[in-house]
Design a protein around this nucleic acid. Structure first.
Length: 465
RNA sequence: GUCCCCAUCGUCUAGCGGUUAGGACAUUGCCCUUUCACGGCAGUAACCGGGGUUCGAGUCCCCGUGGGGACGCCA
């Protein structure tokens, strides 16, 4: 049995978006599961739109997600000689021909066909043409046979049949001599010995054309697997031109790559009732035959749930590495203050994203001059200053600044003032955090530290007066 | 318009001829609770429509409807 080889072949005309990432994930998973190779290929034959910045963005996205490739990245622009040779071969064989039709004529042709309620297609005017117009820069068209059918067994769609009569003679080389997609993809998948072509189902219509080119070259087609699209909230396909979000934007928003991967893998694929998959489990359990046929809609809320799951389950030290980006972004310096891992343990059950987590951690590292308006209004009233003063005194006597003594000191103040904890805790929380929500008080105070706690209580007393 | 593809709770999905149609997210209620969360328990919620096939259809077939895609000297 030959080794499985899959590939991801984006065109560098934008960042790596969430739909492309899912396609890449499926290709990568299948290769890993089958202990095959995963190849990265950059389809940059469109010189007009391809940019180095896009190549870099795609590479960065793949790396962030941890989708490592075994070969590549290969660039199609570096393989022009090879394509040229294949085009010449097709020309020599009579499977391709020069076409001198102007863009204007083609445009007119399409319009009239549309008006006649027909499928727009090239009419084959230049096939067999012997006169060569003066100064024309011809394109090369592949001669598609008109009889018979193309049948392929798609791993997710099942048997797919096309009538050759639906296909027209497609352009395989532009007038400047550069090759186009349907030619390069065939040549590359052949040369790179790709066994399984896993791609978005927007390519399903291209497949019979590619198979015909393959036949003309005397080669056998690879196995195809067309995975469904991901739709945006509006039900429209997610694409670069339509509302797709860069995977790097998910990092910026505070999502863990494992959460994004886990979310993505369950979009269009399932394994009974299981929702959470480690990378290893995905690789072991993924199978093309379990991929859905229907398009699915992206749902951020479920991603958030998974993200929090990973924030809670992963080691705090690992979270800390990813969190550093957010601290930098939010201008929080964590070099002074409690250990980041302790802060993570205290806050991880209250944050769905790392962005939220970093924001919630701010008061552990920075003093503040203002209080949350609603919280201050509700908790700072007449008499609160006295309560805080008592807390200041009580906490001031705590020598061993730890959970138990802190808790005992607070309870002692409650007892002395004959107040319930519900009257003492909330104002203390606002005083030391500036907000109405935080982890439990003993944990919060411990992490803030004795010195800072006492200072902030004093400050709050001044503020109330 | 032509061709192709698709169709189970709001969303992601399980189901592979006989199920009280299951799970997850979201949502609602209750419990836990010094706040916010977490957690626990319970609930609301779906087979697009119409014809067949069959003793029996969410499951198979056909038609309709709806949605998506392709129809480029883009990929």
């Amino acid at each position: 049995m030959t080794k499985v080889r899959t590939r991801f072949a984006p065109s560098p005309t934008g960042y790596l978006h969430i739909g492309g990432a899912r396609t890449a994930l499926f290709s990568w998973l299948y290769a890993r599961k089958m202990q095959g190779d995963f190849i990265l290929r950059i389809e940059d034959t469109d010189r007009e739109r391809s940019t180095q910045a896009s190549v870099d963005a795609i590479l960065e996205g793949m790396q962030w997600l941890g989708l490592d490739h075994d070969e590549g990245p290969f660039y199609q622009t570096q393989r022009f000689d090879r394509y040229k040779a294949v085009i010449q071969q097709l020309l020599d064989q009579g499977d391709a021909y020069y076409c001198y039709c102007s863009k204007e004529r083609l445009e007119t042709l399409r319009e009239s066909q549309w008006a006649a309620k027909q499928k727009p297609r090239y009419d084959g005017l230049c096939h067999g043409r012997t006169d060569i117009p003066e100064g024309a820069e011809p394109v090369v068209r592949f001669r598609n046979q008109q009889e018979g059918t193309v049948i392929f067994d798609d791993r997710v769609r099942g048997t797919v049949i096309f009538n050759n009569s639906e296909l027209d003679d497609l352009i395989i080389a532009r007038s400047d001599g550069t090759p186009t997609y349907n030619l390069t993809v065939v040549v590359d998948d052949l040369d790179m010995e790709i066994t399984h072509v896993i791609r978005g189902d927007d390519h399903i219509n291209n497949t019979p054309r590619q198979i015909n080119i393959l036949r003309a070259l005397g080669q056998k087609p690879p196995i195809y697997a067309h995975v469904p699209m991901i739709l945006g909230d509006d039900g429209k396909r997610l694409s670069k031109r339509h509302g797709a979000v860069s995977v790097m934007q998910y990092r910026d928003e505070g999502y863990l790559p494992d959460a994004v991967l886990n979310y993505l893998v369950r979009l269009g694929w399932s394994y009974a009732d299981q929702e959470v998959f480690s990378r290893e489990q995905m690789q072991a359990l993924f199978d093309l035959k379990d991929v859905n046929k229907a398009a699915s809609t992206f749902n951020t809320e479920k991603l958030q749930w998974l993200n929090q799951h990973y924030i809670k389950e992963m080691p705090a030290s690992t979270i800390a590495e990813h969190l550093q980006w957010q601290f930098n972004d939010q201008g929080i310096d964590t070099r002074q203050g409690p250990a980041v891992t302790d802060v993570i343990d205290a806050l991880k059950e209250r944050a769905r994203t790392l962005k939220e987590l970093a924001a919630a951690a701010r008061y552990f590292y920075q003093d503040f001059d203002t209080y949350d308006e609603k919280a201050a209004k509700k908790q700072f009233k007449q008499g609160t200053a006295e309560v805080l003063a008592a807390l200041h005194e009580g906490l001031g006597t705590v020598d061993h600044w730890d959970l138990e003594p802190i808790h005992a000191a607070i309870m002692q103040v409650c007892k002395a003032l004959d107040l319930k904890l519900g009257k003492v805790g909330p104002p203390l929380r606002v005083a030391v955090t500036g907000t109405a929500m935080s982890p439990s008080l003993d944990v919060t105070l411990k992490l803030i530290g004795k010195q800072r706690t006492l200072e902030r209580i004093e400050k709050a007393i001044d503020y109330i007066k």
